[in-house]
Design a binder for these strands. Structure first.
Lengths: 239, 239
DNA sequence: TTAGTTATAGTCAAGATGACTAGAACTAAT
DNA sequence: ATTAGTTCTAGTCATCTTGACTATAACTAA
């Protein structure tokens, strides 16, 4: 048996063709808000240069190649669009609704990534790649607004339990910086004293002898994260 | 442009063909252990009737059809192989390693389901469909052992937080039955008194006026679960 | 009637959490 | 140089949660 499919899209062929498979990524990084200067969540989007949804902003993504795993495809595509090599990359969800894309049916396996601010600052930007505040997105192509919402929800969830916040920070950080990450993601103020007590209770956080100099007030001690990434079943730790 | 693919598998065609997409499901239900009589986790498997892995046991699954969502495909395929209509059905993970299947590359989007014991008892069994204890599986086809392990891990995780245990029980249940579910899944004993205190603290559990009669000892009160399912981003509540 | 078993409520100490106070350590203004 | 302002940091205290345990209630089976 030798079934033949075609990529062109008329009704009959659409009925016969298998859904096409794409990989997309939601990439989060912290950047200072233009207004308050406090860290807030941003993500890079790419402008679509062809139909459907031509000229609208969309998540970076593309087809899965024959010789790469899903995670590799997500990594590659991240690198190609933004030049980033994320510290944290995990599968988010497979979106497969019937009408996500107008012509052909597309199943998207979406990954989400966290990148450190030092890296994020180096990310490519251009006419067709730009960073946006995660909480102030315009209307995106396809169902990408819903995907970002879900990624944000997962991020908040993980933040509440696990030790994921550190992947948005550099190698060394102050406890106040950690708190700012929590505040940015969870969108509420936390008591500095109680927060530090809790963080200091986790064994994955290590005191260094260094202090952050150059601030306006008492220099805070620097800490380091010694835990492991924490990813999917490919290396187990999702919830 | 009109690209042509074929399903037959020689090296060159494999390089060109897109990965094929399949849906599989891990279905958990409680059944009494043959030895102790206490409830334990079981799942149905199907015997493969063709290569690859002919005659080995595998998760129920099949290709995604053009007019059904991912979740619908999982449902259908559950119904077709076991006759079950699960109470709880959620996406588990998309498995897309390069060598999951020997000939063609297959990306499997796996769902997991919980069914009530009353339903599970009615499930079809045949020469090619049989239930197995989840913690005593032989070697399965493809990477299905790893998939089941991951599903078990997710189940334990969800059990620890959310109110998922009730989907393995019928409409009415005693607090001791809930405890037995936790004990079966988490594989450790729990203090009856403390457990009941905790469960009674959750607002989703409602006391009924009824008692379970016919036991050997003091008849326990029956309770009812009033919470919502809780699923993926399609209806939001994963962690 | 009694022994055995489960159901259910309650106690108590240890630990975690949230609100709060206070001193230490630095910068910037006077 | 002194002072005011701010953040960093440690600590207190009442409340809530948790795990170990005790005790009584309510039923069955001998």
């Amino acid at each position: 048996m030798n079934t033949v499919y075609a990529t062109s899209a008329n009704v009959e062929e659409r009925r016969l063709a298998p859904p096409s498979l794409a990989i997309s990524t939601v990439i989060f990084a912290l950047r200072p808000s233009e207004s308050s200067g406090r860290p807030t969540l941003w993500l890079p989007l790419v402008r679509r240069i062809r139909e459907p949804f031509k000229d609208m902003w969309a998540l970076p993504g593309g087809p899965l190649q024959h010789d790469e795993s899903l995670q590799d495809a997500a990594s590659r595509n991240l690198r190609e669009t933004t030049g980033l090599a994320p510290q944290y990359l995990e599968q988010l969800y497979a979106f497969g609704g019937l009408h996500r894309s107008p012509a052909q049916r597309v199943v998207s396996i979406v990954y989400w990534a966290l990148v450190q601010p030092t890296e994020a600052a180096l990310a490519d930007e251009s006419e067709n790649v730009r960073w946006f505040r995660a909480d102030r997105l315009a209307e995106l192509a396809f169902d990408h607004n819903a995907i970002v919402d879900y990624a944000l929800w997962r991020l908040r969830n993980k933040m509440a339990y696990g030790s994921i916040a550190y992947h948005l920070l550099g190698e060394f950080f102050t406890l106040a910086q950690v708190r700012e990450v929590y505040e940015a993601v969870l969108d509420r103020q936390l008591d500095p004293a109680n927060f530090r007590r809790q963080i200091k209770g986790t064994p994955e956080i290590e005191e260094t002898g260094e202090y952050l100099q150059g601030g306006k007030h008492r220099p805070p001690r620097l800490y380091r994260f010694t835990g492991t990434p924490g990813l999917g079943p490919d290396n187990r730790s999702t919830p």
